[in-house]
Amino acid sequence: MEYLLAQDVALSSAPSYAAMTKLPHWSQLPECSEQSLISQLQTTLEIQQQLNIVSMAAGKVLPLSALSLKTAVGDFIAIGSSQAEFEHRSVLVLNQQCLAELIYHSDYPFTPMVQRELLLLESEWLFALRNALVVSRLQQMALKDTLTGLGNRRFFDDSFAKNVQLAKRHHERCTLILLDLDNFKQVNDTAGHSAGDEVLLAVADCLRDTLRATDTLFRFGGDEFAIILSEQDTDNAELVARRLVKVINQHFLCQQYNVSASAGLATLTAEQTGQQLFSAADTALYAAKAAGKRTVCIA
């Protein structure tokens, strides 16, 4: 099912930043009786928070075990959700455009009367949800490279700082791989920028297909990429880096244009800062280039 993308929505209608059930942990949410559902939903542009508010309201119609939301900007699950015997799905539509799909789970059947009451609640959510989708999509666009869809430099800087901070706090490892394409400039110079874009897209696909979902991937610069490996992959960081280089080197487009990849990697030590970790990986990348390219060097 295709859900509405934010650019399909009139941005001018989005508000400015303002300001149950059997599910556990709902006590931290405001009671529906204190204000209308619409008023509560208008207090936040966070999709997750809106879903939690709707779950609390829906739980007063029928005790729920779970509530989840599928959208174009991602899937969301209400806090405390668990599977149950009965399921009810509802497509949220505004102005003939599909915003999302809402999936209820309960130990009790969804009778026609219950479904009608839930539909009334959903109708009160539509405009607030649409606005939240707009904001979420714009936030995603601001953090993505427009060509490849990978995280951009801004997203990398934020993610890298957080990963280093968490690694130090929990005494875990954090590994950074910097990858650069060899001979890429000649593609733009001889075959044109459209050919260069095709190569970059192919490389991005290679990286996505090779890495685990828990690893984070960025287009760092023109033909430079960065990968932050999850804790469980740090032991195999060199194997990961070599596999990435190999997959790129063997891609038919890269072979056609004589493009290859070099990589440098470094793993955070207890004494290092994030800047020092980046410098170590960058130095290793230059060493790989100096060693004849198409290879991997470790800091």
Rank of each mutant, 00 (worst) to 15 (best):
T148Y: 01
L92S: 05
A237Q: 10
A84H: 04
R208Y: 02
N152Q: 08
S82N: 06
L229E: 00
W125Y: 07
F127H: 07
L200G: 00
Q186F: 11
D233Y: 11
M20S: 14
K293P: 06
P15L: 10
G264H: 01
T146L: 11
A10R: 12
M1S: 09
Q28D: 11
R242P: 02
L62S: 13
G274C: 00
A14W: 03
N95P: 02
C297A: 14
I248N: 06
A128M: 02
P30W: 05
T146Q: 14
H88S: 13
L119N: 11
L45G: 05
Q272L: 07
A128W: 01
W125G: 01
A10E: 12
E101C: 08
F76I: 01
L166Y: 10
M113W: 07
R89E: 13
L51Q: 07
L51M: 04
F225P: 03
L178H: 05
L147F: 10
S12C: 08
C206A: 09
T71G: 08
M1G: 11
L217G: 02
A167V: 03
Q250N: 15
L166S: 13
P30V: 03
L265Q: 07
C98G: 02
L133K: 01
A280M: 07
G151R: 04
T21A: 09
A161E: 10
